[in-house]
Nucleic acid binder design. Sequence first.
DNA 1: ATATTATATTCTTATATAACCATATGGTAA
DNA 2: TTACCATATGGTTATATAAGAATATAATAT
Lengths: 110, 110
Amino acid sequence: MTCDKDIEKIYSLRAEIFKALSHPIRLKIVEYVSKEEKSVGEIVKYVEAEASGVSRHLALLKKAGILSDRKEGLNIYYRLEISCVMDFFTCVNKVVRTKLKSNIDLIEKI
Amino acid sequence: MTCDKDIEKIYSLRAEIFKALSHPIRLKIVEYVSKEEKSVGEIVKYVEAEASGVSRHLALLKKAGILSDRKEGLNIYYRLEISCVMDFFTCVNKVVRTKLKSNIDLIEKI
DNA sequence: ATATTATATTCTTATATAACCATATGGTAA
DNA sequence: TTACCATATGGTTATATAAGAATATAATAT
């Protein structure tokens, strides 16, 4: 009972997760909050970006289901909701290394 | 000897990998070529999209370092270059399921 | 040489995303 | 109440990405 539309929808939902992770600041945020929850203020300081922008990045990561938040007084604390996301990073580093290495190989051929 | 600029650059390179995976058609392609290499024609048929678009998606995935290609006669075969990418999918499905489930929980509260 | 097939590229247009600045909300303290 | 602090949202503009159609390349076959 799985129709074409369902499959399309599922691929789109998956793609959204990757899109949420496709920004350097958001990756930095995810890594930062992965060990323990952090307030927006802490995150803003850590990533050295504009507060309003960080706020939007956080909202996006939350909407994607990657982070969750918790209000306490004036502060809002964000934390990693799905910890397996951290496993991506090892693999991504492998891709990055392979790519950088292939560039070096090219340089040597000039 | 790792300066701020290097760190920024590394996060950007990582983000590029995720960006490459942030499109439903590209995800479908990656999955399709993960077991064995496929020609562009086969891929076009499988994903049911326009050839010129698929070609662009393939170029992007190759540029990101996720796929590699091989020419044989008239055909070009693409295959998954970094197999650990497939491990992402289990985790991504987990995120998607959690998200869908939280929507169901919301529906029941209306 | 010409024709054919597979794939890639160019161009245009629509849409999405990001950054920046200003303003708004929502708790807390005085 | 007013003032203050942390965070979020709105508006604008610049830039990036996507889709579609047309054209170009490159390998093979005739």
